[in-house]
């Protein structure tokens, strides 16, 4: 056990945090790809991009506490032929530097990879200034931006590797750390834009991203054991482009969908899923779990996940409620004679 940074208090070599894995993977990729450069705005330690800087100092740039400048410099390096990995907290990426991400990077379709840490309420005790419950909404509205929300450290590693060969700007949203592992190993196929089915079921579907995936998997187990419910769980790691086929199958197969995300219920995963459902023309019950239309309260992440009902308890409660809700079009109970 050792202190590992401003926002970390423990380090477990067997269970590295998302950010630590990101730092390690990027450092490995740096050895294979001389075009990769790394940038940060005085948060090298917290975002773990500093590991890359230690090994490749000539390809590492700390621009100081100047996020708008950070993305402007990243855009310039991309125009010069590099593949910049730009890291800072999610709130500074999506709000303070929104214009630079939009105009300098997305408008020019530049090959910048943005790794935003401390997203959602994962840094809950730091207060509203450091919460970021709007970034998915903002980022997915930028033309050409790909938005990825890995479920755990293993998926973060896969997402970072996959985005290297993905054309155009990519926003990878990770937490502060301590997010539990969803996957026992890395033996699964990660493709940008293709969700992962964590459990199959026909009664309802829980579509989750980020730390909510692990909670959804746990909720599905409890719902099966206690209520005999057959719950499908989709890890929707890519919010844009979203996996329409998986959502349409869920609409058709289960007709009841719950989305769970560490983000506002406005504009994030839930909204993205709702847009797809609306296009199908099929009736489907949808419950969006996330941070409601308010600034989140201050507290430890796990307490906030419970408070905002995006943990296993909250998903179980929503599942029981949605199973008891009627679909108006289905309420003809006369047999077909």
């Amino acid at each position: 056990m050792a202190e590992t940074g401003l926002t970390y208090t423990v380090y477990d070599a067997d269970h590295m945090t998302q950010a630590e894995i990101y730092g390690a993977v990027l450092t490995r990729l740096g050895g294979e790809r001389p075009d990769i450069v790394a940038l940060t705005a005085d948060l090298a330690k917290s975002t773990k991009i500093g590991k890359f800087g230690e090994k490749y100092p000539e390809r590492f740039f700390n621009v100081g506490i100047a996020e708008q400048n950070l993305f402007g410099v990243g855009a310039g390096l991309a125009l010069a032929g590099f593949t910049p990995f730009i890291s800072t907290f999610a709130v500074f990426t999506s709000l303070r530097a929104a214009e630079q991400v939009r105009t300098d990077i997305c408008y020019q379709k530049l090959n910048c990879k943005i790794i935003a840490t401390h997203s959602g309420v994962s840094f809950g005790q730091a207060g509203t200034t450091h919460h970021c419950t709007e970034d998915i909404s903002v980022m997915r509205s930028f033309a050409g931006m790909t938005v990825i929300v890995p479920a755990d450290g293993i998926e973060t590693a896969k997402a970072v590797a996959a985005c290297c060969d993905w054309e155009g700007p990519v926003y990878i949203r990770i937490g502060r750390g301590f997010e539990p592992r969803c996957y026992e190993n890395d033996q699964y196929d990660f493709q940008i834009g293709k969700s992962i089915q964590m459990a199959d079921g026909s009664d309802l579907t829980v579509i989750a991203c980020g730390p909510s995936v692990q909670h959804a998997v746990e909720a599905a187990k409890v719902l099966k054991a206690e209520a005999g419910l057959s719950v499908r769980v989709l890890n929707m790691h890519t919010i844009k482009p979203i996996d329409k086929d998986a959502i349409i199958s869920a609409v058709h197969d289960t007709r009841r969908i719950i989305t769970a995300e560490d983000h506002s219920t406005i504009g994030g995963l839930g909204t993205s899923v709702a847009e797809v459902i609306a296009e199908t023309g099929k009736s489907c019950l949808l419950r969006k779990l996330g941070i409601p239309d308010q600034f989140a309260i201050v507290g430890y992440p796990d307490d906030l996940y419970n408070h905002y009902k995006i943990d296993a308890d909250g998903i179980i409660e929503a599942a029981n409620a949605i199973m008891g809700t009627e679909l108006e079009a289905d309420e003809d109970w006369e047999d077909e004679f």
Binding site: S202, D203, S230, H252, D253, T254, R255, K282, G324, D330, D332, W333, E334, D335, E336
Partner: peptide, 21 residues
Amino acid sequence: LRVKRGKTKAGKGLYARRRPF
């Protein structure tokens, strides 16, 4: 045969509105 909390409905053909249990 569709079942839902004490209610039932029988029909012909393949049920198209969701995947059978």
